[in-house]
Computed example of a mutant assay.
Amino acid sequence: MNTVIETILNHRSVRKFEDKSLTQEQIEAIVASAQAASTSSFIQAYSIIGVTDKEKKQRLAELAGNQSYVAENGHFFVFCADLHRFDIIGEMEQKNVSTSLESTEKFMVALIDTALAAQNAALAAESMSLGVCYIGGIRNHLADVCKLLKTPEKVIPLFGLAVGYPDQTADKKPRLSFQHIYHENKYEQDIEQYKGQLENYNQIVSAYYNERTNGKRADTWTSQMASMLEKSSRLYMKEFIQQHKLNVK
């Protein structure tokens, strides 16, 4: 096994960081690694906002659900789906690009491009012995986040990435089994086998929590997921995105 795979497999979210900022060299290396990710048709439909202002980081922490590690880290990156620059390109080249930019397809391209770039950034940070934590909570109040970061139309902040020197290392959470995730030639639809794999995973997850909390918690993965999905969240998202002239057609 090589060091890249070891770094990938050793991933865990870090939620407590030392009070130490990243260097400019580290920031540039992380962003350069993000930019090296694959991108659909060379479109590069994302932007990254680094937040260093303490008041802005604190406000983002509040908007994300009072998550302290959004404010207290070595550097906070916000990854944005960005089709705004293509409005500018359309003007520069005197081409009508509006229909394409408002399509579901281009919105999906922007989401995928952004996610690929972010994962490259996370891996680069972890390869430097830094810790990372993705922050989807910034989507709780996107209008406020957009106002705070002064993002233009067709730019949507998707998630944050807190990066820093770990002050606390969490245990690695067990993932679903290879057999449950990987399908060969077709999607396996044996429901009893499918449920059996989930039951086995429930036992693994329950044991993980039991050991991690000294018996105070032993819930299963399927119970977690069902409880989470039973409650609807961020239902304003479709309307908000379309107000920004994305995913309209």
Rank of each mutant, 00 (worst) to 15 (best):
Q119V: 07
H180L: 07
Y165C: 02
V132A: 05
L101K: 02
E184M: 09
K249M: 12
S223E: 08
E126A: 04
V205S: 09
I8L: 06
A71W: 00
H11C: 03
I8E: 01
V163F: 04
Y194N: 15
S33A: 12
W221K: 15
K147V: 03
L229I: 02
D87E: 09
S21T: 10
I88R: 14
A117I: 01
M108T: 11
S223D: 13
Q119P: 14
G90Y: 02
E239Y: 08
N202E: 09
A61F: 08
Y201N: 06
K20A: 07
Y194M: 13
Q224T: 06
S38V: 01
Q242A: 09
N10F: 03
I5S: 12
L148E: 07
S41E: 04
E184V: 15
A61P: 14
H183R: 13
V78I: 13
T222N: 10
A122D: 00
K186D: 14
K150H: 12
Q26F: 05
L60P: 01
E25G: 06
V78L: 00
D167N: 15
D87R: 09
S127P: 00
I181E: 12
G74I: 04
T104D: 06
A170H: 11
I241M: 09
I138T: 08
D219T: 14
D53I: 11
L229V: 01
E91F: 07
K16L: 12
F79D: 00
V163C: 07
N2K: 08
A170I: 02
Y208V: 04
S21P: 15
K172G: 09
V78F: 02
K216E: 05
K16D: 03
I138V: 14
G160D: 06
K56W: 01
Y69A: 05
E93T: 07
K147P: 14
M237Y: 11
Q193Y: 09
